[in-house]
Design a protein around this nucleic acid. Structure first.
Lengths: 201, 201
DNA sequence: CTGCATTGAATGAATATTCAATCAACGCGT
DNA sequence: ACGCGTTGATTGAATATTCATTCAATGCAG
């Protein structure tokens, strides 16, 4: 039920338990169906306690989003040995591997649904804007390293990073909102793209 | 207020007026804030009338989604003269032009928010799955034509189409959920991609 | 007159939020 | 060690509002 929940179950304080419960309710019912009562379903303690820790539903959800994004960044932002080509390939595999563990589907679903809220909620938009910058910077660094190393052509790192990141977002949406996601084709084309556009001869 | 509403205002029957009102309410309040009362705000007639034409909110919204997607497909699916290269460029301009008319922002916002619902609603997912296939087919035809014409390399049309379509989805989401969308960079990189990967020498 | 469109008011369920009341831990002076 | 006040965590019940839906009644065109 709570597989893939990024908020640890063991020795958890109330704070973490609230985040866990919110995650589970979000995955189970979706953002549009997310209510305080449903969060309480997954929360071992009393519903009123949520209001002791947060000003209200909005406050709770914004904090939840912030932590989700932190987890998402932490998942990517790890030590990566190897040259730029290897690091980029590992990145592409991470976001566009055809097989996806069931645990990760819930996480991606939650993220995709939260992201859509950014269309109407400024606070959400701010979080995602910051997160996007982080990932594009991360990618641009890899590209820039590759150019210095001489393995990549002299492309504009920001421009390439923006495009790959956009694809990453598209793949995530495709994964959880289509009955026939095309992740395998995109993954293959990404290799062809790297070969044709990035790799020096 | 209703700029960019794809449902015509003139000589409208009740059916169309309901769609118009739903669109306006969706753009104004977002999917999570979409209620029958809010739809009624933009509906010149009585709220009860909605239930005379639809079984309920769900029924109404599924029909609305269906018509939104029809409009979206109709917007793209038009006669396109010129060779494959020109037709592809026109497609890329249509989805990734840096400047976006304010009228279109509402439409894209609505579409992005509806799409996110597909993560938890099978009926939504079916509609988008079908729509995705339509666009990928459209793109794949252009690529295949280009290969026959000798202007494109012998790539896999489906694979390239899937990737470009994924980028299109990513750009739409980026446009309406970020304070700093990177559409211009992606548009430029798409040109470089076509040059490096598709164009025959 | 008859069938369809339309209305306004009403209803009951869902939902977010509040509140008064325990409970458990802790510091502190004696 | 013992009372004691303070503080924060926790609870169950209550409240006020929003929301989807229903329904009986009215208008109206053929």
């Amino acid at each position: 039920m709570s597989a893939g929940n990024p908020f640890p179950e063991d020795a958890e304080d109330t704070q973490t338990a609230i985040m866990r419960a919110t995650f589970d309710a979000l995955v189970e019912y979706g953002y549009a169906g997310l209510t305080i009562d449903r969060i309480d379903e997954f929360f071992p303690k009393s519903k009123s306690l949520l209001y002791h820790h947060y000003d209200g539903k909005d406050d709770l959800l914004v904090d939840f989003l912030s932590r989700m994004i932190d987890d998402y960044e932490a998942e990517i932002d790890c030590e990566t040995p190897g040259d730029a080509r290897e690091r980029l390939d590992r990145w592409l595999d991470a976001i566009a591997r055809p097989e996806l563990a069931e645990e990760d589907r819930g996480f991606i679903r939650a993220l995709v649904e939260l992201r859509a809220q950014a269309a109407h909620d400024e606070r959400y938009r701010e979080h995602f804007t910051r997160s996007d910058r982080f990932f594009r910077g991360w990618l641009a660094d890899i590209i820039a390293d590759g150019i210095e190393e001489g393995v990549f052509r002299e492309v504009d790192p920001e421009q390439v990073a923006a495009t790959i990141h956009t694809i990453a977002g598209g793949v995530m949406t495709d994964r959880v909102t289509s009955d026939d996601p095309q992740v395998a084709d995109v993954r293959a084309e990404l290799d062809a793209y790297v070969e044709a556009r990035l790799l020096a001869d």
